[in-house]
Amino acid sequence: MNLSRKAFLRVSCFSLLGAAMRKTAAAFGSTFSRKVQWGMAVDIRKCARRPECTACIDVCDQAHNVPRVPDKRHEVRWIWKDTPEHAFEGEDFRYSSIAKLPVMLMCNHCDDPPCVRVCPTQATWKREDGIVAMDWHRCIGCRYCMAACPYESRSFNWVDPRPYIKTANPEFPTRTKGVVEKCTFCVERISQGREPACVEACPEKALIFGNVMDANSEIRRMLSSRDHVTRKPELGTGPNVFYLL
């Protein structure tokens, strides 16, 4: 290849610019070219048939070695149960028929996740399949993602979690103190073609998992036939966990 200095500079400038633009587009990007976006539909009423049931929480905590820290201030949670008042903060469900029903909360795997935008090391990032993943090897524990997440879906290991794991699952690592963790839609199971553990464990089949980019998927059929809400849609994060009313 024979390049003049000028041509070389031109080419390198343009390629740098191109790379920068692609990066920027990815940073601000949403689902513009995504073919897969895993999502979850939560059927609030089905779930409420068993108000005492914690099957999804238990199986998730067991599968991912989520510690049960007794001190609520240091609690770690991937999927948890909360009131509609907390889950849909800013909405008014006081007089609605779901006012008293429990709501399962987890990471929304947003289209445009603020946690990914702010993470200084890309320890959390949006995968090709739309999952907001975590790299616990890289997390520096700055907790910027926790300040950025408007759903409180992220937990920090304020102390060593191991003493609070009763029976550990050797197939999955624990975390070390000083890193942030959250629901990952069971990336380890998805790579084996399996559904998330919570979906499998739910006795009422109240959790529906699937590709929301695929118009023929079960989750899409469910969403087109039922009224649903997402959490704080006004923030522009584009949650991919939908609540069927």
């Binding site: 616990w136 191991r162 003493p163 029976t167 550990a168 699952n169 050797p170 690592p173 624990t174 070390t176």
Partner: peptide, 21 residues
């Protein structure tokens, strides 16, 4: 190496994690 502050030693998987630490 820091591997073992997260990854588990299979032999200890059902035992006490505190002891391992």
């Amino acid at each position: 190496p820091g591997c073992w502050s997260c990854h588990l030693d299979a032999g200890h998987s059902t035992g006490s994690l505190t002891a391992m630490r």
